[in-house]
Design a protein around this nucleic acid. Sequence first.
DNA 1: ATATATTATTAGACTGAGTCTAATAAAGAG
DNA 2: CTCTTTATTAGACTCAGTCTAATAATATAT
Lengths: 185, 185
Amino acid sequence: MTPSPGRPRLASQELLQEAAFELFQLRGYRRTSVEQIAKTAGFSRATFFNFFSSKAELFWVETDALIDSLREFLEGRLAEPEPPTLREALLVYADTLDSAAIPWALQNYRLLEAADDLVASGASRVLGINRLFQRYLQGGEDRADRVVLHGEAAALTGLVLTALLAWIDAGVGRGRLSRHLASVL
Amino acid sequence: MTPSPGRPRLASQELLQEAAFELFQLRGYRRTSVEQIAKTAGFSRATFFNFFSSKAELFWVETDALIDSLREFLEGRLAEPEPPTLREALLVYADTLDSAAIPWALQNYRLLEAADDLVASGASRVLGINRLFQRYLQGGEDRADRVVLHGEAAALTGLVLTALLAWIDAGVGRGRLSRHLASVL
DNA sequence: ATATATTATTAGACTGAGTCTAATAAAGAG
DNA sequence: CTCTTTATTAGACTCAGTCTAATAATATAT
């Protein structure tokens, strides 16, 4: 950690997030302005946009990290000599998820309903997961028709999402995601 | 058609749409402002919002009509003494679709990529279709577990969407949607 | 110490979406 | 002509997101 030149950071993603989630709980996503978030964290609006490209992006950071870890996991499996099927891989990954470490955004996914930009950004995350699945299926078996493969990916995306939301809704003592996923698959 | 009291309409959804789609083609969705659309159609910005609650809503009107007709079709099938499975019903409906009457928004669905609000509003249409499927499945067979049923609906939504986009991408001479749908299901 | 390069923070102006209110315009009914 | 009803519009407002230019705080070189 050699100190880099230039003015050191005062703000941080974490500080802004804490302020934001608190305000979201309190007044809802829409009625919380970027200005309020920044001021609550002790910074200016301009600084907010140095850290996040939009209000919605802040909402999803933790979830994006989770999706990233899923991507890495799948890439790892695909690199193995005998890659498991996507379904098998997903079940294994789901077993590793800690019920206590669900991203704030996912725990509060019902906030989506009221806000356009959240739906949009959420949808683009779903599409990203769909692309992950497409790539995995493409890598495993290149015999299938492209459209059929895309269909399979889309269907799996829908199933995984359903299981995930059911798991979250189950509340504390929800058990393992892999159980929910298995029953849906 | 007895004339209603009050000032008669000058503007119409159709006029605004024509202006809008022309501008969207020309400069893209994002670079076309509501102000430009309204002025091109010969009206003011305020009038635009008398007809559409948002720029994105204008984009989807034709598609919404299509989804509505699908809803009615499914409700009709479900009311029959021996309702077909959802898959069967969808294949029949897909066979009725005219390849030449695809909504402008669907033909140009690639415009979505660049615009947040379009993705959001598109996603909410997809969720609407998903709800249609959920209701149909719920009505047909009430034995299944709720989560499994939701999973089935989500999977079907993904499959139908895949088939639809492949059909559109196939261009003129694309044949019947039912053919694409059958191969994906 | 002092100057310089580098990076962080910020103010402030700008566009554009969407909301809202109040004014005006165009019709029919009495 | 007056009243009622509805359409159109101007204009002000909030907020998100973009951008530029100014300033502040640090490390390093001299």
